[in-house]
Design a binder for these strands. Structure first.
Lengths: 147, 147
DNA sequence: TCCAATCAGTTTATGAATAAACCAATTGCG
DNA sequence: CGCAATTGGTTTATTCATAAACTGATTGGA
């Protein structure tokens, strides 16, 4: 499997590794997001919506900006996603001063308890090739990448 | 044992790790793609186009389907991206029987030699928090995830 | 006091990616 | 034969996500 070793150029090893890591991560992401969406289809939910469900479900008084920061996406993106989830009746937005605080509706909570454990189980299966130690190692390394 | 609280950590460690890995990877990806796009703007190129440039530039006689497989995206996506890159004059498609083989135009090759080393340098900097051993470790673990 | 800066959120236009349906050509096999 | 399955690519409708410009409200200095 030298698919990526095909010499992006004659630079040093350190840089070659960086590019290979980039490629590898985008590929894992592409594959993973696709399979997750497929799996979440059962509940008519997208991966993005699932992420929001988890965050809002497990944090009190989250503002939209805070949510955006947690998910590393833009606040514009959050606005759009929330509008849809509000329409679906899963999320409530309560304005206080200029800030909108988020929480799950009753229906959202039911969904949360229904979907999260199952999706969790599914996500775990995507890393089935790693044993527990390796998973922990991978998580540590990835955390370190993001400081 | 569904005494699940509002908290993913109520399940076993193995599964909790899986979900955390998923979140971590999507966040790194989101952040990384954004910064890469920003960086590639200098050349009016997107990350997706860059990926194609690299693959086509370093493999002879690649078909569209093969390219899609290498990048873990759908062939429909490839069709769209190639159309644009063809318009930009970076890529040639040569049909042989029903297969279209890809190659870089002269301009594409120039671009390749201009952009790749610089982008490589940039990508490397995104993993600056890891030393060389750790990078190699991370790459090995990620490869293992994808079998 | 007033004006610039900031902050939370929204809007708009655009690009990336998908799934699913499709076309045309080739092949396999009953 | 003849027809179904496969293969490579395209099209279409839809979802995600971004950047950038915007609104309105608040605040902090000169």
């Amino acid at each position: 499997m030298k698919e990526n070793t095909t010499n992006p150029s004659a630079s040093n090893n350190e840089e070659r590794l960086g590019l290979m890591l980039w490629f590898r991560i985008t590929r894992i992401y592409n594959q993973s997001i696709r399979e997750s969406n497929q799996h979440l289809k059962k509940w008519n939910l997208s991966a993005a919506q699932f992420d929001i469900l988890v965050q809002v479900g497990s944090h009190e008084r989250l503002s939209q900006q805070e949510l955006a920061n947690k998910l590393f996406v833009t606040k514009g993106n959050i606005t759009q996603l929330l509008r849809k989830m509000e329409e679906l009746g899963l999320i409530k937005r309560e304005q206080e001063w200029k800030t909108k605080y988020l929480s799950l509706t009753e229906e959202g909570k039911e969904f949360f308890h229904e979907v999260v454990p199952k999706q969790e189980h599914f996500q775990a299966s995507q890393f089935a090739n790693l044993n527990e130690t390796e998973k922990q190692q991978l998580l540590d390394l990835l955390s370190k990448v993001q400081k």
